[in-house]
Amino acid sequence: MTAGAPTWSSDAVLRRLRGTGEGLVRSTGPGAAADRVMGRALTGFLDRIAGRGSGPAVDGIVALPFLVHGTHSGDPAPAEPAAVAHVLWWVSARYVDDLSDAAPRPPAAADTDSADQDLLAVFGIACHLATEVLDEGCRDDPARALRLRQELSRAWHLAIAGQLADLTATAATASAEEVMDGYLGKTGAPYAMAAAMGAVLAGCDEARVDAWRDFGARFGVLRQLVNDQRDIASGRYEDLRNGTATLMVVQYLTSLSGPERVVAEKLLVGCADSAAAREEFAARLTEPSQLRAFAAATGPLIDGLHASIDEAGGVAEYVTGLHALVDQTVNLYPDFLLGARG
C-alpha cells in the first residue's frame, strides 16, 4: 500500500499459497496422502480464482488483516499469517458452500471417490493447514499463537451457525433481521477473524481486538450483500434457483402488498426449475425503485463502517486504505446503487 515499496500484495499471498499447494502435492513423508489431496484442493482453488477473474474478491479477503495491522504499527507485513489463514478459510468454506448450492445429481462412482477426497482435503485445510500457518507465524510467541487459534475456532463456530440459519431460512418467511443474523455468522465471522488476527499480531489489547472483530463482522456482512449482487449481475442466479433468503429478496417481498406478494412468491418458487422465472424475478429485484430502497436500508451499515475506521484512528495511510477497502466493496457492482444516497 505504500507509494515507494509495497510490503504486501494479494499476488504475493496467492504465490505463497500456490507454493504451499505444489509442495504438498509432492509430499512423500508422514501423512503424505493427506498432504497430496490438500495440495490438489488448494491449487485447484487458486486455478478457479484465476479462471473466474475473482481478483477483487480476493483482494478484500487478503487486505483486511494487513490494513488493520498497518493502522497500529505502520508496517502491515507481519499480518501475512492472518491473510494466508483467511484465504485458507475460504478455500474450505467455499467448497462446502458449493456443495449446498449445487443441483443434486447422482454421481458416478469415480466422481464419488473424488468428492470424498475433496471433502477430506478441505477439512484438512481448515483444521490443520490454517493452524500450522498461524503457529509458524508465532513460533517465538506461543501465547499469541493460541489467541490466533482461538480466533480461527470462533470463526468456524459462528460461521457454522450462520450457514445453518441460511440453509433453514426461506425467503417467504424470513425477516430482514434473521437474514442479517445469518450473514453475521456465515460471512461476518471469517472477516471478524481476519480483522481480529491483524490486531492481535499488531499487539493490540483485548478492547482493541474486540473492536476490530466487530468491525470485521460488519464488513463481512457488506461483502455478503455484494456477493448476493454478484449472483444477480453474473446471471448465475444460484440464490434464486435455490430459494435462498437473501436480504435483497426478503426486502423486496416485504415491500409488496398481499396480492402482489402472492404473485412474487409463486414466481420465486418457479425459479427452481425455470430460467425464464429467474430472469423475470431478477428484473424485479433490480428495478431502480427497488435498488434505491435497498441502498437506503444498507446505508447505515456502510456509514457505520466508515465511522468505526475514523474512531479507531492510527497511521493515516492505512486508515485511508480501510476507507478505500469499504468503498471498493460498495462499488464492485455500481449498477446496483449500493451506498447511494437520495
Rank of each mutant, 00 (worst) to 15 (best):
I49Q: 09
P78D: 11
L120D: 07
S27C: 09
T28P: 02
P107Y: 05
A103R: 15
C127L: 14
A103H: 04
G60W: 12
P81W: 08
S54L: 15
V62Y: 12
F66I: 04
G44A: 14
F66C: 03
G31M: 10
A85Q: 03
E80K: 10
L14D: 09
D118F: 03
D59F: 06
W89A: 15
E132S: 11
T43A: 13
G51H: 05
P76D: 14
A130D: 06
S92P: 08
S10P: 02
E22G: 00
L17H: 07
L88V: 04
T43Y: 04
G70R: 09
P30S: 10
M38F: 03
L88Y: 01
T43R: 09
M38N: 02
W89C: 12
L64T: 11
T71V: 13
F123P: 03
G31D: 13
A50D: 14
A63G: 04
A93Y: 02
T112F: 01
E22T: 06
G29S: 02
H69S: 08
F45A: 09
G70Q: 07
V91Q: 06
V62H: 12
D98V: 01
T28D: 08
D75V: 09
A83P: 07
A34N: 12
P78H: 11
A121V: 04
G44M: 04
R48I: 02
G29E: 00
V62F: 12
G29L: 00
P106R: 14
A115M: 13
F123Q: 13
A32R: 07
G74Q: 10
V58W: 04
S100P: 01
V25F: 02
G55Q: 06
M38H: 04
I49A: 06
A33M: 08
L129R: 03
S100V: 06
G29F: 01
S73P: 07
